[in-house]
Amino acid sequence: MIRNIFALLLILVISVFLASSIASIPFGTEKTTVGKYYLDKTIEETGSVNTVTSVVVLYRGFDTLGEVTVLFLAATGLGAILFGLREKRKRKKERPSLIMRTGTRYLFTAALLFGAYVFVHGHLTPGGGFPGGVIVATAFLMLFLAQEGFRVSEKGVKFVEALAGMTYVAIGIAGLLLVGSFLGNFLGTGIPNKLASAGIIPLIYITIGLKVGSEITGLLQNMRETTEYES
């Protein structure tokens, strides 16, 4: 009890400290040098009309590569730790209904397509590789939920995941070789607002989309297998 109260006090002190620190940051002023630069120069420098995308994929593309890796790691790590533990915990569940099963079959393709659309148009519209990939994974999630005994090929997932990841890095190295800078835009900016514009951004978003999609699918599969249906 005393421990808890003391802990509460400690947290209070930390909160006060942080709050008072943060309170001193003037908000909304034009202090963010870098942000202003991005807003001003995006289209000119990258050809992407979606500033967020250009920041994510070009200005801070290296971070994105890192974040993709982090996501990959999370999936891999989870897979590694859950490996072999799958069969241990079984829960019984009611089977999905017929409507569910039929409906998901039709929705699956649409969802896949939508996901692909989102990551291909990342430089033009809101969205991009990450949401796109998640939408793709959602398509598979539907099947996992609705289709009894549905499995994706583990090898296939791995293959796509690996290839997508490698392609991302390969694009980066291509930039290094062609324009002397890792992840450098070796395709030119193109005409803004066209689909085939903004240089390597769409390419990267495609790889990200595929990678995220396959990763999350794999992750879902890993987690799904802890359940079993009532027969």
Binding site: T69, F72, A162, G165, M166, V169, A170, I173, L176, F182
Partner: peptide, 23 residues
């Protein structure tokens, strides 16, 4: 040589591990 390769090359190899495993 570009120091970026210190990161890029292991990264691409890390992604490729399952492919080697397939062989």
């Amino acid at each position: 040589v570009s120091p970026i390769l210190l990161i890029a090359v292991p990264l691409i190899l890390a992604f490729s591990v399952p492919l080697w495993g397939l062989i």
